[in-house]
């Protein structure tokens, strides 16, 4: 039984139109939203701020690009309110590449998401990297045709985002630091909490749902599958091919790289290396080869030295 079968379908019931008829097509269903993320598995999604960077990412083998105005490291350095990108910039990036284009909306800013959907982006990241627009409510993602990816630090947070209609989850990590430790902690936490659920007797899942602050239906589904019912990527601090392979070995389905590529000395080469390391994450010979001669990595920030207000992972609930 596939997880796709158990996904809710939002389209109208099949009518009497003949098979293949455009009138019988259902767009924006949970299955096509979640299925889109399945196609990204084993791949690298790269932050880009210009059409030129998007082309470099595509040439390097990125499965998608994330269009944004400033990479997280610059948002940290420059401060100020971080918002959805300029539509002109997003349109240029959409026109420049053949791979999917994602873009970020502020947490709770459903109008930014409406704009991004109208622009034709392929995925919206409701992202803690931007300044949250609503301290209480995330976007009701069921209302959209475009699919959403959301960050999570633990299983309960991931399931709350799924309850709101997210079709893909990523670890939050700590974006813009080049320090992978938070991504590691979030991935290990989510995996450990899933393993615990899978081992519980059915009658204990209700209390587990209470502890996780998540709907019992989703908790039961995760316990049965032994994994999330959607794709789980990693993000937040991945800067080297070894970082990417580490996260893949920890069970990530794929990798987001934010500042790590275009804040490094040789972005094209590093981008290729991270793509190859993500594919061959279990092969140390390949990892040695791709890790050589990459030039300067992005300058890192130790997460432990960040004041609480500068930690993006604490944004959202």
């Amino acid at each position: 039984m596939s997880e796709a079968q158990s996904a809710p379908s939002s389209g109208p019931a099949a009518d009497s139109t003949r098979p293949g008829d455009p009138a019988a097509r259902h767009a924006g269903t949970a299955r096509v939203k979640r299925g889109m993320a399945e196609m990204l598995k084993g791949g690298v999604i790269m932050d880009v701020v210009t059409a030129e960077q998007a082309r470099i990412a595509e040439d390097a083998g990125a499965v998608a690009v994330m269009a944004l105005e400033r990479v997280p490291a610059d948002i940290r350095a420059q401060g100020g309110v971080a918002r959805m990108s300029d539509p002109d910039m997003i349109s240029e990036i959409v026109a420049a590449v053949s791979i999917p284009v994602m873009a970020k909306a502020r947490i709770g800013h459903f109008v930014e998401a409406q704009v991004l959907q109208a622009l034709g982006v392929d995925y919206v990241d409701e992202s803690e990297v931007l300044t949250p627009a609503d301290p209480h409510h995330h976007i009701d993602k069921w209302k959209f045709t475009v699919p959403f990816v959301c960050g999570a630090t633990n299983l309960g947070e991931a399931l709350r985002r799924l309850a709101e209609g997210a079709a893909m989850i990523r670890s939050k990590g700590e974006a813009g630091t080049g320090e992978v430790s938070n991504a590691v902690v979030h991935m290990r936490t989510i995996r450990a909490e899933i393993a615990r659920l899978a081992a519980l007797p059915a009658e204990e899942l209700y209390a587990a749902a209470k502890e996780l602050r998540a709907p019992v239906e989703l908790v039961t589904e995760v316990a049965r599958l032994g994994r999330l019912p959607v794709v789980l990527f990693t993000a937040g601090g991945i800067a080297t091919p070894a970082d990417a392979a580490l996260m893949m070995q920890l069970g990530a389905d794929g990798v987001f790289v934010g500042s790590g590529i275009f804040k490094s000395g040789d972005p094209a080469r590093r981008a290729r290396a991270i793509v190859e390391a993500t594919t061959m994450f279990n092969d140390p010979d390949v990892l040695v080869k791709v890790s050589r001669g990459l030039g300067e990595a992005m300058v890192g920030i130790n997460v432990s030295e960040l004041p609480a207000a500068a930690r993006y992972a604490d944004r959202g609930w």
Binding site: G20, A24, H26, T29, V32, P100, G120, T145, V146
Partner: peptide, 24 residues
């Protein structure tokens, strides 16, 4: 683009039985 992705029932030659539910 992704907002145009869809599901539909299709008759597929060589696949007996009811239409195949196809995800594009």
């Amino acid at each position: 683009r992704q907002v145009d992705s869809f599901e539909v029932d299709l008759d597929v030659v060589g696949v007996p039985g009811p239409p195949v539910h196809a995800v594009f």
